[in-house]
Design a protein around this nucleic acid. Structure first.
Lengths: 193, 193
DNA sequence: CTTTATTTTGAATGTTTATTCAAGATAGCT
DNA sequence: AGCTATCTTGAATAAACATTCAAAATAAAG
């Protein structure tokens, strides 16, 4: 008996960064070897193959982002302030232009969901979880009386997520910080109306 | 002297479809040879290399889509009806799940804009052109009195484009037609408010 | 019809790719 | 300390890759 030497989380975060930098298909095993410090054999022993490493990275990414999400909303007085802080953090990620601050899930949806059923299933489920969290936020906001109007929390959550996906794509074609920030502000207004 | 045998537009549309099916990096020269019917040498003679073929395809894609855009809006009585028809067409593309009906520009923004400056420049300019067209649509809608409210045509155009990018991404993770259609309807309402 | 410039052809090139595997190392159990 | 199951190592492998090129074909000009 012998336990693995590497720290799984550390390895997966390194792989995440590599995938975000170059995209899944352009990231070679050589890149992953350098990024993780693991030899090919170890990667195959632990994750089966390159796609297995992606799926594991995607799950770690989702865990990390969920934690971050919770901490952003917990650090705010009410749900509306939470939404503001959340969108601010996304805007600054967009503006940074740093690949490490992009969204691995979104990149994977665009690059491989169409051609890989397994990835599609994982990404779809993660999207539903994200929706569930945001729906809860909008429920709370309504209860707290900080937002009013007839739209359901579910509808609001969907519109917000669509807006965030769109913002991330848009900001790669149009890098003006004021424009990105302006669109995000309007998104918040529309979604809370 | 000798003129090329192949029809450039036909070849570029075939390449477009190949790139949309598998994404840029997963599309091999072998795939492109089969899709276009051109031998490697001819592709290199006409487009320099694989990336050159992508850039040319991107330009053809933009031309084709611009024509389509104009014809959708020309076929409607006023700018608001045009917007409705336009969003309907995008919704049905999203619902179809057909890779050939996805958006090559958006796929390219997500897959290669980050790592290729030349592609980034082309895609950025195309995004600006799209914005310019939509801005004009919203100007007309205001003049026609079919939409009111304080937002500028520019802001409306930006929000619409962000919404469309988002819708296309979202619909790959969440395939329920009613959900997609509902989000699109809400997007139109928000953007025209 | 001949010439000439250009395109087409498709096999060959050298690289890069994901993956495998046998040998060596080592942690945990007795 | 010794055993054993498991992990690590990294060179080897075979397939796939983008790209090149010289020979063959052919359209247009004279």
């Amino acid at each position: 008996m012998r336990s693995a030497e590497f720290d799984r989380e550390v390895v997966l975060r390194a792989a995440m960064n590599a995938f975000m930098e170059k995209g899944y298909n352009k990231t070679s095993m050589q890149d992953l070897k350098l990024a993780t410090g693991l030899h090919p054999g170890s990667i195959y022993c632990a994750f089966e193959n390159k796609k297995g490493l992606l799926l594991a990275s995607l799950e770690q990414y989702n865990l990390d982002r969920s934690e971050e999400l919770k901490s952003i909303f917990n650090g705010q007085s009410d749900a509306l302030s939470g939404l503001r802080a959340y969108l601010d953090s996304i805007v600054s990620e967009c503006i940074s232009g740093d690949p490490a601050q992009s969204c691995l899930s979104q990149k994977a949806i665009n690059e491989i969901a169409q051609t890989d059923e397994q990835a599609q299933a994982v990404l779809s489920q993660q999207c539903v979880m994200w929706q569930g969290f945001m729906k809860e936020v909008f429920s709370q906001a309504s209860q707290q009386g900080v937002i009013t109007g007839p739209r359901s929390p579910q509808q609001r959550a969907q519109s917000l997520i669509v807006g965030i996906y769109g913002l991330r794509t848009f900001s790669q074609a149009q890098k003006d910080p004021d424009v990105i920030s302006g669109i995000a502000n309007q998104l918040l207004i529309d979604v809370c109306r």
